[in-house]
Amino acid sequence: MGLSAVEIGAQLGARVIAVARGAEKLEVARAAGAADLIDSTTGDLRERVKALGGADVVYDPVGGADFMAALRATRPGGRILSIGFASGEVPQVPANLLLVKNLSVTGFYWGGYLAFAPARLTRSLSELIAWHADGRIRPHVSHVLPLERSAEALELLRSRRSTGKVVITT
Rank of each mutant, 00 (worst) to 15 (best):
V62N: 05
D60G: 04
L52F: 01
L81Y: 11
L147R: 06
P139S: 05
N102S: 14
L128I: 10
L45T: 08
T42D: 07
W131L: 03
S104A: 14
Y109D: 12
A65Y: 02
A153C: 07
L103P: 06
P94W: 05
P139V: 07
S87R: 14
A73S: 11
P76N: 07
T106Q: 12
L81I: 15
R75P: 00
A70P: 11
E47H: 05
G112H: 06
A95N: 13
G54P: 00
E152S: 03
L45S: 07
V100D: 01
Q92E: 15
V58C: 05
P91T: 09
A117D: 14
G107Q: 04
F67D: 04
K101S: 12
L147F: 13
N102Y: 04
I80P: 08
G78N: 05
K50Y: 00
R136L: 08
K50A: 12
E127H: 12
L154N: 08
P91N: 09
R138D: 00
M68S: 07
G107N: 05
R149I: 02
D134C: 01
V105C: 11
A153W: 06
P94V: 06
R72Q: 15
G107V: 06
V100Y: 09
R72F: 10
T41N: 13
S126R: 14
R75M: 02
L71G: 06
L145N: 04
P61S: 13
I129T: 15
T42P: 00
A151C: 11
A119P: 01
V58W: 07
A86F: 09
P118T: 03
D134V: 00
R75D: 02
P76D: 08
L103C: 06
S150E: 02
T41K: 12
P91Y: 09
F85L: 09
S104P: 10
R138I: 00
L125V: 14
Y109P: 01
E152W: 02
L45D: 03
A73D: 02
Y59A: 03
